[in-house]
């Protein structure tokens, strides 16, 4: 695969086999230009979460290359990995805020990669970072929440904090893992809209894992379908017809009903489980 200058992120032959023997990714290759929002769809266990986590190496890929502006993240030593992770903001399904810290501390923790240990431990963040954090909180609609504790917020508010934390890293790309899976339908749309608006404002690329096909079609510029660790579709949302959905998800009457939100709620637990196994 030829790497061109305007490709932000290129995945080459990316594979992941967990110690349990599960092959979560099989030889995945993908290129993402700067500024493009790509939605990753596929059934539970298709490897969506693994793919996103292989990019910033929260999960170590077994084989393949992850080129961020031409630099292979998969081969970086620890210090290089830290610098690469600063350039990739991550947003999580269950928000993954540090519950007992305040909103402000959660947002500022996005700057940890830029700070030395003592400064961050004594909470002496540079004035610029603090100003940026206030501005971002304002932007995601949480002005005035700075000193609230994270566990006092609602789901939608927590995810907004998660977004601010990812953005304060000044990333070039956002890795977004099921951002709406724990939210109600209305909040889901608001959050997706916010993420896409911010990507447009700041010229960010994004890979978004998502269960909700309708939501994906509504917001994506490009959709990638994953099934059993392999890419089975890659194209614009308009091309996503019933036959393609069948290829991704298997046989189902796609015209009869829109995907319901209840499905979302109970279809997601496979990935955390796998992660736990990978860590064990």
């Amino acid at each position: 695969m030829q790497v061109s200058a305007d490709d932000l992120l290129v995945l080459e032959g990316l594979s992941k086999r967990y110690p349990t023997g599960d092959r979560a990714l099989r030889d995945v290759s993908l290129r993402l230009p700067a500024g493009q929002v790509t939605m990753l769809i596929g059934p539970s266990g298709a490897g969506k979460s693994t793919l996103i986590r292989c990019v910033n190496r929260l999960v170590e890929p077994t084989a393949g290359r992850v080129l961020l502006r031409g630099e292979d993240v998969a081969r970086l030593p620890a210090s290089g990995l830290r610098r690469a992770r600063r350039r990739m903001g991550m947003i999580f399904q269950e928000y993954a805020l540090v519950e007992r810290l305040t909103v402000m501390e959660n947002v500022l923790s996005g700057r940890l990669g830029y700070l030395d240990f003592w400064r961050s431990t004594l909470r002496r963040y540079p004035a610029d970072d603090i100003a940026a954090a206030f501005a971002l909180l304002e932007r995601v609609g949480l002005g005035g929440f700075a000193d609230k504790r994270a566990d006092a917020l609602s789901g939608g508010q927590r995810q907004r904090v998660g977004i601010a934390r990812a953005l304060i890293q000044s990333p070039e790309i956002l890795l977004v893992d099921e951002p709406t899976a724990s939210l109600d339908p209305k909040t889901s749309r608001q959050i997706m809209r916010l993420i896409c608006e911010l990507c447009a404002e700041k010229g960010l690329a994004a890979i978004v894992n998502i269960h909700d096909v309708a939501l994906a079609k509504m917001f994506a510029q490009r959709i990638v379908g994953l099934r059993a660790g392999e890419i089975v579709f890659d194209g614009p949302p308009a091309d996503l017809g019933p036959d393609i959905l069948t290829r991704i998800y298997g046989e189902e009457d796609w015209t009869a009903a829109r995907e319901t939100d209840e499905d979302d709620a109970d279809e997601r637990p496979e990935d955390p489980l796998r992660l736990a196994e990978a860590r064990a």
Binding site: M104, D128, I130, A131, A133
Partner: peptide, 8 residues
Amino acid sequence: MSARAWSP
């Protein structure tokens, strides 16, 4: 915009 002070 002037920098707002913040401490935990």
